[in-house]
Design a protein around this nucleic acid. Structure first.
Lengths: 221, 221
DNA sequence: ACATAAAAAACGAACGTTCATTCGTTTTGA
DNA sequence: TCAAAACGAATGAACGTTCGTTTTTTATGT
């Protein structure tokens, strides 16, 4: 029974995904033809259907692959000892150090998620996983006394994820965008949030002309 | 000479743009057919070409319209007296209070900008305008002694714009996303950044186990 | 080792659908 | 009255997918 070794099969599949990623990042999902992908992958028009059911399946495959990649990167970060160093490392490895085309792909996937149920679910799963890992980092650091703030960890994780989104978006919008230059600011704003006590005081009705350095964040529940 | 009054012409044009916006936000640019837009606008298939040269021209029209809208909103904000109140108002009116389909449209436009030169230029222009207005707000507040920090205004404006992007993205990704709940955190992180002095000290090599409340941001030049 | 067989993989031309745009005709309104 | 505007069926190109054929790979028998 001549079945191709599953290793070879996986290799071909990965190669097609790589090609699809390049094409999607370059021209977008809808402007990329299957022929483009096949040309990029060096295969014929029909061959891709041996490995993927449809063009949509290619996007799903890409999301799943990236989810696994980021999951691994975050897991590695969970091992680190220093919280802020870990966070900055996460920023580097999960956002800034990723090649530029990943940023374009991110925009493409978010757009596609809007109309493709399955892509939306993959993306939501990826996002949930990422944020819960971040929240876990925060809670562990608190339990070990390395963090003092009291704001809900989930919400802080959401803020961090959003900063990552924003960096991706900017990178996609402008190839000359210098995300690295913003790292100190990003880290500073995260530090400010992490240090906030969980006070429930409503924000002041009017702003006094001169304020103390940092005021507390009165979040909704 | 029976030419339609230019008022009527502008009305029809705006109506078509509105319809296109709804359709693009619902199904995305490439999955929306001209028929969809015409049906939504209540006109026939060919009529749209009296007002717009092509489907692409519709997107360009939408970007131009939104740029003008946001420009007006920001101009109004420039008039405000209290800096942080103005900033929070900008957050509300330019991001949170905009209808949900604007968030979807934003993602769609960023994706489209990636492959359409003219859309990219419109978007970049819109973005530049927004950020320079924000930077102007900061510099004015500093000149009047209402702000003490010293980080570059352009970079701070970039951070603020990115937070706006991030809110839009999240709204587009998840209709249940509660941006309002994050406002206190967003404002707190912005306050922390605005209060930073322009020190150039490099970030500490290793993190001490217990840190003071806020540390300074050592940006690149 | 080699030959053989059979199934999977790859090919690529062709199909059928979808859709932006056009155009000849009709309607509208200044 | 007549040019602009609107209509909507028709057009033609683009593209995802299929399918009959060819090639490659692997398992088995000698």
């Amino acid at each position: 029974m001549p079945r191709i070794t599953s290793l070879r099969h996986a290799e071909r599949q990965a190669n097609i995904l790589r090609s699809a990623e390049v094409c999607f990042a370059r021209s977008g999902f809808h402007r990329t033809t299957m022929q483009d992908i096949c040309r990029e992958a060096g295969i014929s028009a029909g061959a891709v259907y041996v490995y993927f059911d449809s063009k949509e399946a290619l996007i799903e495959g890409l999301v799943a692959r990236d989810r696994d990649e980021i999951g691994e990167a975050l897991a590695r970060i969970g091992e680190a000892e220093d919280f802020f160093a870990a966070l900055e490392a996460a920023l580097q490895s999960c956002v800034l150090d990723r090649p530029a085309h990943k940023a374009s792909l991110f925009v493409e996937i978010v757009a596609e998620a809007h109309r493709n149920q399955r892509v939306a679910q993959s993306l939501a799963g990826c996002d949930r996983q990422l944020r819960s890992m971040l929240a876990g980092l925060i809670e562990r650091a608190r339990a070990e006394g390395r963090l003092s703030g009291g704001l809900p960890a989930e919400r802080l994780a959401m803020m961090m994820a959003m900063l990552g989104d924003a960096l991706f978006i900017r990178r996609a919008m402008d190839p000359a965008f210098d995300g690295q230059a913003l790292v100190p600011m990003l880290m500073a704003s995260i530090r400010a949030l992490l240090d906030e006590p969980e006070t429930a005081a409503p924000r002041p009705a009017a702003m006094p002309p001169r304020r103390p350095r940092v005021r507390s964040v009165a979040g909704a529940a």
